[in-house]
Amino acid sequence: MSAASAAVAGRSAGAGARKPRRRGAGWLGFTPFAAYTLVFMAVPTVLAVWGGVTAEDGSFTLANFSAFGDRSILKAFENSIVLSLAVAVASAILGAILCVMLLAAKPNGILRVVVDAASSVLAQFGGVMLAFAFIATMGSSGMFTLWLQSTFHVDLNSLAPDKTAGPLLYQPAGMFFPYLYFSIPLMIIAFMPAVEGLRPQWGEAVATLGGGRFSYWRHVGAPVLAPSFFGAMILIFASAFSSFATAAALTNSGILIPVVMQQDLSSETASGVTNIPGVLAIGMIVIMAIVMWAYSVLQRRAARWQR
């Protein structure tokens, strides 16, 4: 027996070579991971929420919830929800179409590798860099803006729903486009495995049983994909809803709730007091919880025929 295994056999954690062992000791191996996630995931979440239900002096209060009576905060919540919803629906539909089209490419071919990688990059490509690209595209002197102007004499910014809120790109309606830009790739990443899971035999079975392509999509394709489709859509909603960097890089005004949170943070006088951001965090968590609950209901409905 080697020195290493002899040394290990002496420790309780090294049990396993022989049958009987003390079950307890091995569990200690999880301590670092548990401690890390406790301190840096559980504690911050609790602290954020705690900040929402305490007063500046640290005593418990529900007074902070009056923030939800503030019209600009309500508007920011509404903007965030409407934007995320629109982005989720549009990206889910467009992304799903692209996924189906990608079935025409060879599963391990170069196109699929490139699309996979590009989707991962673009789905990660939120924030500052994405904002730059869209400023260069549809900002006041962006390439697309100028092209529209010279070719069709149309001012992109005149299309903005709110004429008083500045250029289109800095309003929720304009942010729809950069949000789509990272959400469609996310849809491809999340939904492609489900589309690939459609077995060719199902299509062949439909055909030999007398059904056409439309029957296939109506009776097999759509119902089989539905749970993954709505699951991916909810994922996109969550990701768009919590997205901060893109909005922050485009605008300083608190039109979306994550931006409002940061503004309130930097305006809090006493450092480390996070009452208003805390109560907004509670609002976000509640909305996310509702979304996740909807997701689990959906999954349960499909569970009967899924493994």
Binding site: R199, Q201, W202, A205, T208, G210, G211, H219, V220
Partner: peptide, 15 residues
């Protein structure tokens, strides 16, 4: 879909 045949596949063909 109009040849009026019945087919059984190797596997995984049930919806």
């Amino acid at each position: 879909n109009r040849r009026d045949i019945g087919m059984v596949f190797q596997s995984y063909s049930l919806f």
